[in-house]
Design a protein around this nucleic acid. Structure first.
Length: 502
RNA sequence: GGCGCCGUACCCAAGUGGUUAAGGGAGCAGUCUGCAAAACUGCGAUGCAGCGGUUCGACCCCGCUCGGCGCCUCCA
């Protein structure tokens, strides 16, 4: 039985979908005016895994994730570059797909854009005015928070408290300082749409209400996003949606924690963020392997907790993954035997159960990973005792099947072949910068790459094999040492040949 | 000022009101090996920030304190 932590109630609750074996979920995507950083990646990944697990559990999942493509920041960026907003949003939506694709994040079943839902948005604003929950002031429309009695139930804030701490200058035209814009009259040079209140554009929150209702219905199962969206974004969505329909909006509210650098939230003002793009461009590892390391790293912490991004954590993810892929390499290398076949069923069965229990418990991916590790250890033992070809296949398939829920262990090869160094200068970031000058630290995975080509390595290995045959061990060791100095590890197999890895 | 999160071994990180506090990484020792690597075996928190309280019993529940952080403006 799946249970999910619901921000709305502050508790873990048994998950009950509205319709049997079908889940409808909506996740707030990104505002497309810039490249995504790893914080965006975490959020996208968390919900990708939730979706995968729901499907794995037999649910049919309708998954909507929006792109916010009307916004002040987009307008500003367009002006800076002297292009249209459309140019900006198209570019960054494309970049989003590329970046998230490298992390193995699947596309949602619906990916609505605000600009394509003006009719629905205007309708919804109209309804809110009709119901007396919103009012117009000179072409702007505001939601009147005092008219929605339960306002604050998601973020657990009271209107009075919010007022006291308000850091923003109050707009005198609003009836209450917390009233928020549903519709903004447009200024010259801004994109605008015709509406009953004159030309304008939607406020930030309304698009999600309009689009989720259109694609998923007035009430749906799961609504998610980053923790920072709880207030005001999701609070306002609830007010608008419930106000308009009189029905419950989303039933389970799921929020992921932040990625931090040295215990601080990543932010542009601190200069301590890394875009997904630059991590891939400058990683000294190949793309697919880098993607999997990042994925492992991001899932090795529970989605609600904070997560510190550092060199070391990526390196640890790599080492942990090595263990799995090393095992995959060794499968089918050993002489056949059926000695341990009987034991395999048991360990796989136990792993399946434990894996499901972990994921059922509020998507506990760190625990699910721990179960895969345990299976790895078990299979290693059985393999050394002897497994038949069929059993070895079964084991690998099980790793792939469960790993797929997390989007891990799907690569055909785990090989750190040499790749050309980037011609972009390597950026100096703040990673691992504790104590020293934070501006002068360079992440290790951004360091220059090995120069030896695969062919050169193979050649060396062949020479060493030859030396070994002639019992010229000093020479064999010398070659081993040389390759080691280049970051190449040789593993001799029982049959006398060798495999290698970077 | 209000709301909230985090503090578990060298590092990362799960977890439970009561049998041995997962797992990974690193480390050390051993088996294996021409030497290695991998794998396997063993070692490693008498304690889960501190102090009180509830309880037969708390790391887990409650309160306070300390330390770190987030939100209340845009933010995954």
């Amino acid at each position: 039985m799946l249970s999910i932590y619901n921000t709305l109630t502050g508790k873990k609750e048994p998950f009950q979908s509205l319709q049997p074996m079908s889940v409808r979920m909506y996740v707030c995507g990104v505002t497309v005016y810039d490249y995504c950083h790893i914080g965006h990646a975490r959020s996208a990944l968390v919900f990708d895994v939730i979706r995968r697990y729901l499907e794995f559990s037999g649910y049919q999942v309708e998954f909507a994730k929006n792109f916010t493509d009307v916004d002040d920041k987009i307008i500003k960026r367009a002006h800076e570059r002297n292009v249209s907003c459309d140019t900006i949003t198209t570019e960054f939506i494309e970049a989003y797909y590329q970046d998230m694709g490298k992390l193995g994040i699947r596309r949602a079943t619906e990916e609505p854009k605000a600009t394509e839902h003006m009719v629905e948005i205007i309708d919804l604003v109209g309804t809110l005015i009709q119901k007396g929950l919103a009012y117009e002031v000179a072409g702007d429309v505001y939601f009147q928070v005092e008219k929605y009695q339960p306002y604050g139930r998601l973020s657990k804030r009271k209107l009075e408290d919010l007022q006291a701490g308000a850091r923003v200058e109050v707009d005198g035209r609003k009836r209450h300082p917390m009233d928020f814009a549903l519709w903004k009259s447009s200024k010259p040079g801004e994109p605008s749409w015709e509406s009953p209140w004159g030309p304008g554009r939607p406020g930030w929150h309304i698009e999600c209400s309009a689009m989720s209702m259109k694609h998923l219905g007035e009430t749906f199962d799961i609504h998610g996003g980053g923790m920072d969206l709880i207030f005001p974004h999701h609070e306002n969505e609830i007010a608008q949606s419930c106000g308009a329909t009189g029905k419950e909006f989303a039933r389970y509210w799921v929020h992921n924690g932040f990625v931090q650098i040295n215990q601080e939230k990543m932010s542009k003002s601190l200069g301590n963020f890394f875009t997904i793009r630059e991590i891939f461009e400058k990683s000294k590892w190949p793309e697919a392997e880098t993607g999997e390391m990042l994925r492992y790293f991001l899932l090795a912490t529970h989605y609600r907790g904070p997560l510190d991004f550092s060199d070391k954590s990526i390196e640890e993810a790599k080492n942990a993954l090595n263990g799995f892929y090393d095992l995959f390499k060794r499968l089918h290398e050993k002489e056949e035997s059926t000695t341990a076949d009987k034991g395999l069923t048991g360990v796989i069965e136990r792993c399946k159960v434990a894996f499901n229990e972990a994921m059922d418990d509020d998507f506990n991916t760190p625990m699910a990973i721990a179960e895969l590790q345990r299976l790895k250890s078990d299979v290693n033992k059985l393999l050394s005792q002897g497994l038949s070809t069929e059993a070895q296949d079964t084991a690998k398939k099980e790793f792939r099947r469960l790993g797929n829920v997390l989007g891990l262990l799907q690569l055909d090869k785990w090989q750190f072949g040499n790749i050309p160094a980037p011609d972009i200068p390597i950026r100096i970031g703040r990673l691992e910068g504790l104590g020293g000058d934070p501006g002068l630290v360079q992440p290790k995975f951004f360091q220059p790459r090995t120069a030896l080509s695969d062919e050169q390595i193979e050649q060396q290995i062949a020479e060493r094999l030859d030396a070994k045959k002639k019992k010229n061990f000093p020479k064999a060791d010398e070659i081993r040492k040389f390759l080691a100095s280049q970051g190449i590890v040789i593993e001799d197999k029982p049959d006398g040949t060798s495999r290698w890895k970077r």
